[in-house]
């Protein structure tokens, strides 16, 4: 029961932190240069792994779909289906998981260390707002770069699917890409990027909050990193369900009865 109360308490605190962060973002915007720096750092840190993962996700999707599609004689749709599946489901979740392992852990450790060595207090004592100075640029950096990474990962997944499709299912590259525009409609693209943004907001809020509120020396920083990893993973799968459900509802509504 205590654990449950503690969990609810933490959700409340994280939500309040998110609200304070939003308020700061609009009332006292951070310097544009700081946001660009953070976005650049996050994107550069994660680009190689995202590109590699994207390539293999495309490849996996191609392998998984080939068998079923061949039975229906619809191999021409392989590229479209694999790409749509990647964009709408696997891509955003994978990007968020990878970012949480790399950037989430890094951010909470960095902010946690700044907290326990009183550097965050020092920022406040020197007349600056730590939320505006440290948190908002990191938050925006993660959110913006997650969309850039999704775009890059998606291109790599097309390349991966195309290569594997050509080698193992003998689908020519032209045939692989031909039906991508038919299946990959604008709503799918919007859903993919919206999901990615929601996941990035969840991840960025949790990792900055955990680091910002760390207490108790090296052990406290370690605890902040571990709780960031655990709570991010849990929140991401829950949010994946919520966003998928909402997306389906919106699509149904848009199509009409």
């Amino acid at each position: 029961m205590n654990h449950l109360a503690h969990a609810i308490d933490e959700i409340g605190r994280t939500t309040m932190f998110f609200a304070a962060l939003l308020k700061t973002m609009f009332r006292r915007p951070s310097r544009f240069g700081d946001v660009v720096d953070q976005t650049w750092n996050v994107t550069l840190q994660s680009l190689p792994t995202t590109a590699m993962a994207g390539f293999f996700v495309g490849a996996i999707m191609a392998v998984q779909f080939t068998m079923q599609m061949r039975d229906f004689g619809a191999l021409g749709y392989l590229g479209g289906l694999a790409t749509s599946g990647t964009l709408r489901e696997v891509g955003p979740l994978l990007i968020a998981f990878m970012l949480s392992g790399k950037v989430g852990a890094y951010t909470s450790a960095e902010l946690g260390t700044m907290r326990v060595t009183e550097q965050i207090d020092a920022v406040r004592c020197l007349g600056a707002d730590p939320l505006q100075e440290l948190i908002v640029p990191r938050f925006l950096g993660i959110v913006i770069s997650s969309s850039l990474l999704l775009g890059a990962g998606l291109l790599m997944s097309v390349l991966g699917g195309m290569t594997l499709g050509h080698l193992f299912a003998h689908v020519s590259p032209e045939e692989y890409v031909r039906h991508i525009p038919t299946i990959l409609t604008w709503p799918s693209i919007l859903i993919g990027f919206a999901k990615c943004a929601v996941f990035a907001v969840v991840l960025a809020t949790i990792c900055t909050y955990r680091g910002y509120s760390a207490t108790g020396g090296a052990k406290g920083v370690g605890r902040a990193v571990v709780t960031t990893a655990v709570s991010t993973m849990m929140c991401l799968v829950v949010m994946d369900w919520v966003t998928s459900y909402l997306a389906e509802a919106v699509m149904t509504l848009a199509r009409g009865p």
């Binding site: 060595t117 009183e118 550097q119 020092a122 406040r124 004592c125």
Partner: peptide, 13 residues
């Protein structure tokens, strides 16, 4: 706060 300054115990540089 801008009119106050502080030196921390462990400097907080």
């Amino acid at each position: 706060l801008k009119r106050m300054g502080m030196l921390f115990q462990r400097n907080a540089l």
